[in-house]
Amino acid sequence: MKTFGALLRSPSALFGLAVGAVALMTALFAPLLAPHDPLQTITPLALPGSVAPDGSHLWLGADFLGRDILSRLIWGTRTVLLWSSLSTAASFSVGVSMGLLAGYYGGKLDTALSFIANTLLAFPVTVLYIIIITSFGASGANIVIAVTFASAPGVFRIMRAIALDMRNRDFVAAAITQGESALAVMGREILPNAVTPLLADLCLRLGYTAITVGVLGFLGLGLPPPTPDWGGMVAEGKNMAIAFPHLVIFPCIAISLLMLAMSLLSDALQQIAKGSSRA
C-alpha cells in the first residue's frame, strides 16, 4: 500500500492510473456509453461530426460500412482490455512459476527452463504469432496462447533473477531451518520481494499486449470480424486512410494512449522499486 501512496504522488503515474481507470470504466459500461450499436450501418464513410439520418451525431465519423467509429472504439476497449489482460495474466502465471522453480532449485531444472525461455526469446515475436495463430486458427484463446509463448520468457527471466538472488539470503536459510516447505519458501519469502519489479513489468507488458492484440487484428490474425477491435479498425481503414484519415487516426490514438499510460505507470513503479531498495 506504500507503493500505491507513492504512485499518487507522481504526476506521470497519476496520468497512467487515470487513463487506465477511464479505459476500464469505458469497457465495463460500453453498452451505456456507446451512442450507437457498433455493428449498425448508418452512413458509410461519414466524416467526424456529421449528423446521422436519425438526427444523432457521429462525433468521430463512420467507417466504410457506415458503422459509428466512436461506438466501435468504446466497444473495442472491451476487446483490448479483456484479451490483453487475460494474455498478460497467463504469461505471468507461467513466467512467475517457472522462474521461481528455476531460480530456487537451480541446477539441471534451471538449465532446461532457461534454455526453453532463451529459445523462445530468440524467435521473432511476430513470426511466432503467425505460426501459432495460422496453425490453430484465429480466436481469443489462441491469442492468449500466442502471447503467453512470446511474453512468459521475459517474465521468467525477471523472476528467475530475483529468486537466484533471494535464495542465498539468510532469511531464506532461516525459513529452511524452521522446516518451511519449498513451496512456502518460494511463496512467502521470495515472491513478496519480487512484487514491485513484477508489477512494473506487468504494466509495461499490459501496454505491449494491447498493441499486440491490435497488431494481430491488423494482420487479420485477431478476433474474427465484425467484433469491434482497435487493430482491426486500423486494418480495415488503411486502404482509404489517405482520403479518410479519420478511419485510422482515432483507433491509433486509442492504442497509443493506452500504451503511453501503461509505460508511465511502469516507469513510476520502477522508480519506486529503486527507491525502496536503496532505503
Binding site: D170, F171, A173, T177, Q178, P192, N193
Partner: peptide, 23 residues
C-alpha cells in the same frame, strides 16, 4: 527432517540480510 532440523537453529551474521524486509 523438517521436524528434526527445528532442534537446530541458527543466528545469522548480517542482521540486515537475515530478516525478510517484506514481513
Amino acid at each position: 527432517l523438517a521436524r528434526a532440523r527445528r532442534k537446530m537453529q541458527m543466528i545469522f551474521q548480517d542482521p540486515y540480510g537475515s530478516l525478510n524486509p517484506r514481513h
